[in-house]
Design a protein around this nucleic acid. Structure first.
Length: 555
RNA sequence: GCGCCCGUAGCUCAGCGGAUAGAGCAGGGGACUUCUAAUCCCAAGGCCGCAGGUUCGAAUCCUGCCGGGCGCACCA
């Protein structure tokens, strides 16, 4: 029995009790959940339904709990129900009912953990969105890992997801980039406001190799060649490194398209129609202060040029017009000042900024070498890039390290820790479970131990304490996935794997031998434990997949 | 000054209103003729920054304060 099934049983019992006592069934919730108590003495699962309902229907919680316990105790698969404290229901399951979960998980396979919780939601996820003026730096990499994991989570819960990378290949930053390339090609120092770093010289050289005639052009013409070719090379490099990182986007959206299609004018017209525009000092302003922003924002400058924010408005409108009910944008902490104006802009379009626009802010990332942060400077060209990180600790460790922390928490990635082949390296800790379960399955096959027909599976034999604990941990997976998706917090999956699944599996492994020893006969218990081993393998593999991390067969 | 984030064990961090607040690491003590010891077991470690409030119940929600990080452009 899964927790979701048990929750339904609890709710059904509540309906029965309410009917018997003539209570108002409208007070009952549409659904309920059972919790897994920390303390095993409090049963396999606990329900707080009696506590929640007692005030609504004016029945003391203990009395309600007693009635619920009587009813629930008669349900199939329920071994016992105790009442504790103010009115907790502590429920124990039959070993057979609990053990069946191993079979459910194995048979569900890669689908285990998926749900339709977010079915019908159309969600746009924008992340990384670095302009092609340099390699993806470590802050962008955080979002590559978290954003990609989030897209997997949202899809696993049934949402219709579109991932998106927004870039601009025409702005003044690109001009600086082009001037920097030109300067490098001429052997000059980078311009005052330009970009430094070895990659500039490399790209300048590559452009010259592709377009040798650039040497004979005047500066203006040459700069244009460097701009066009340099941006193409840079963007190509970004896409390649992201692909090597396991991240590809459904849409690569170019700001230029918004301009070419006249979408900025459209957005402006729409905002004017909503009555939030005004002219002042020759510029066109959006009255974002109507919706809580610190100050109003310029859309079109007095010189007739659009602001970057105007393009943001058009881009938001574009996403909404493409049918995305929820527009999610992931930004670094240094951009948190954008939240106010973006939310206000959404409201100016007549949207509900709480529902239609989510802005996720990620705190900064440091890379630690020998315990000291490697400081970044864009001017000096000492940015830490995606390649630097991957080169230092590898793709799996990078993705795991970036995805295992709450986005609200700044991250220090210690190179020494994340390259250790030890249990204090979290990614090894989790991958080791994947490898160990795979190893047990291999060894089982070698000695002729196979799970056999599902009909022959004897779930009631999984009654060891460590087996029970592992089963309960495995049972949590769908709830963990659903919560992580709803809260946009992929780190919950990582923490679950390393703090819940890994320890419970190792304890099971230590106390409950799966394989027969020597020429010991193969019994139903061996087979039942193999079901449990393979169920664990399934959950770890599914969980790591959601994080974009491999589940190795051996290590 | 205003805004956002953070403050939980020595360190790094979990903890979407529930019971005695958890994990890993570090430090102490144990377990390898055994399916991967990359593991496990035992012990130790806490005014959940402070003060109020809401609640049957608060680390969690609200208010104020203290401390730290970041941000406050007709830049991109």
């Amino acid at each position: 029995m899964t927790p979701a099934e048990l929750a339904s049983v609890v709710l059904a019992a509540a309906h029965a009790v309410f009917e018997q006592r003539g209570l108002d069934r409208a007070a009952l919730p549409a659904s309920t959940v059972v919790e897994r108590p920390r303390n095993p003495e409090h049963g396999d699962y606990a329900s707080t339904l009696a506590l929640q309902l007692s005030k609504k229907v004016g029945v003391p919680p203990r009395e309600l709990a007693t009635a619920l316990a009587d009813e629930l105790g008669r349900a199939a698969g329920v071994k016992s129900v105790d009442i504790a404290g103010p009115g907790f229901l502590n429920i124990r399951l039959d070993a057979a009912a609990a053990g069946q979960l191993a079979r459910v998980i194995v048979e569900t396979g890669a689908e285990y953990g998926r749900s339709d919780r977010l079915a019908g939601e159309k969600i746009n996820l924008e992340f990384v969105s670095a302009n092609p003026t340099g390699p993806v730096h470590i802050g962008g990499v955080r979002w590559a890992a978290v954003g990609d994991a989030l897209s997997r989570l949202l899809r696993a819960t049934g949402a219709d997801v579109g991932t998106e990378y927004y870039f601009n290949d025409a702005g003044s930053q690109i001009d600086r980039f082009a001037r920097s390339l030109l300067a490098a090609a001429k052997g000059e120092a980078a311009p005052e406001d330009g970009y430094g770093g070895a990659y500039i010289a490399e790209i300048a050289a590559e452009v010259q190799a592709r377009r040798p005639e650039v040497r004979s052009l005047d500066d203006d013409a040459a700069q244009e060649v460097f701009r066009v070719e340099g941006v193409a090379l840079m963007f190509d490099e970004i896409r390649t490194s992201l692909r090597d990182f396991g991240v590809e986007f459904d849409t690569y959206f170019n700001e230029k398209d918004l301009h070419d299609r006249g979408e900025l004018d459209l957005a402006l017209a729409r905002l004017r129609q909503q009555g939030h525009l005004y002219e002042s000092e020759g510029a066109t302003w959006l009255r974002t202060t109507d919706f809580g922003d610190d100050k109003d924002r310029v859309l079109r400058k007095s010189n007739g040029e659009w602001t970057y924010f105007a393009a943001d408005c058009a881009y938001y409108l574009d996403k909404r017009e493409r049918g995305f009910e929820r527009v999610v944008i992931m930004l670094g902490a240094d951009h948190h000042g954008y939240i106010g104006r973006m939310k206000a802009m959404s409201a100016c379009f007549g949207d509900d900024p709480e529902r239609n626009l989510e802005i996720l802010i990620g705190q900064l990332v440091n890379l630690l070498r020998d315990g000291a942060p490697m400081r970044m400077s864009k001017r000096a060209g000492t940015v830490i890039t995606l390649e630097d990180l991957v080169e230092a600790i590898g793709v799996d460790a990078s993705r795991y390290a970036l995805a295992r922390y709450s986005s609200d928490s700044p991250i220090d990635i210690d190179i020494e820790l994340w390259t250790k082949a030890k249990n204090d390296n979290p990614v090894y800790k989790v991958q080791y479970v994947a490898a160990r379960t795979a190893g047990v399955a291999r060894n089982a096959a070698e000695v002729g131990l196979v799970r056999g027909d599902a009909d022959a599976f004897r779930p009631e034999l999984l009654d060891h304490e460590k087996e029970n604990t592992l089963l309960k941990a495995l049972a949590q997976f769908p709830a963990v996935v659903a919560t992580a998706a709803e809260l946009r917090e992929p780190h919950r999956v990582a923490r679950y794997l390393e703090e819940d699944i890994a320890p419970s599996y190792h304890r099971f492994y230590d106390d409950c031998r799966v394989l027969p020893r020597g020429d010991e006969e193969i019994t139903d218990l061996h087979r039942a434990r193999l079901w449990l081993n393979d169920a664990t393998r399934t959950v770890v593999a599914n969980g790591l997949f959601l994080l974009g991390v491999s589940a190795p067969e051996r290590m």
